[in-house]
């Protein structure tokens, strides 16, 4: 009798009904399930909830966001873009720049809000910087999906598409790093 049978003297009538071979088959089928899942993601052309879809290009149906002058520095406004469930947030930073992001937090999907010059997810206290949507504090590890906005001659703002998420490949380190700029100027 093995040591663990002495330690746990439980006589389960059906414990021998699940063989090692059956367990191996079960694991292999779970593995097949993951493959099916990846195949489903591949075939499913519609982007997942909260995910960006830069491949779709400019939206065929721009969404009116009101007048640019209505939004003061530090203020924000909510709107929907792709459909009624695609909640987005338009904000004006303290520098006066207008930015729009999908409101879905990249951690667990709560709605972010603009507060104290940064985008805040109240569920798990994740914070994003408003300039590019990068996570700066808390559990989120991926940037927010950015919405392309267009200011027209009459002063109106329109959401016209989605921007690709900033990655290490498309990030211009030279342009974005203040220290590098200082060194170049010196």
């Amino acid at each position: 009798m093995t040591w663990w049978r002495r330690a746990f003297p439980l006589d389960l009538a059906e414990e021998s009904h699940f063989s090692r071979r059956e367990f191996a088959r079960f694991l292999a089928l779970v593995s097949a399930g993951f493959t099916t899942g990846i195949g489903f993601l591949w075939m499913w052309k519609k982007p997942l909830e909260g995910a960006s879809d830069p491949a779709s290009g400019p939206s065929g149906h721009p969404v009116a966001l009101g007048m640019a002058s209505d939004l003061k520095g530090g203020e924000s406004r909510l709107f929907t873009f792709r459909d009624a469930h695609d909640a987005c947030i338009l904000l004006r930073t303290s520098k006066g720049e207008l930015k729009a992001y999908r409101q879905t937090c990249t951690h667990l999907g709560c709605a972010v809000r603009f507060k104290n010059e940064r985008l805040e997810c109240p569920c798990h206290l994740g914070f994003f910087e408003p300039d590019r949507g990068f996570p700066v504090q808390g559990p989120p590890s991926r940037p927010l999906s950015a919405i392309a906005i267009e200011a027209r001659a009459d002063g109106s703002l329109w959401a016209v598409g989605e921007l690709p998420k900033p990655t290490l490949e498309n990030l211009n380190h030279r342009a974005d790093c203040p220290r590098d700029k200082t060194e170049v100027q010196a």
Partner: peptide
């Protein structure tokens, strides 16, 4: 995929399919 990088899906599917084939072969 959530970051919008769907181009990795075909390669990942191929790798996953190969791993599953090995697992199924060993199990059966």
């Amino acid at each position: 995929v959530l970051d919008g990088q769907r181009s990795v899906l075909p390669g990942a599917f191929g790798i996953s399919l190969a791993l599953t084939a090995i697992a199924l072969f060993l199990a059966f």
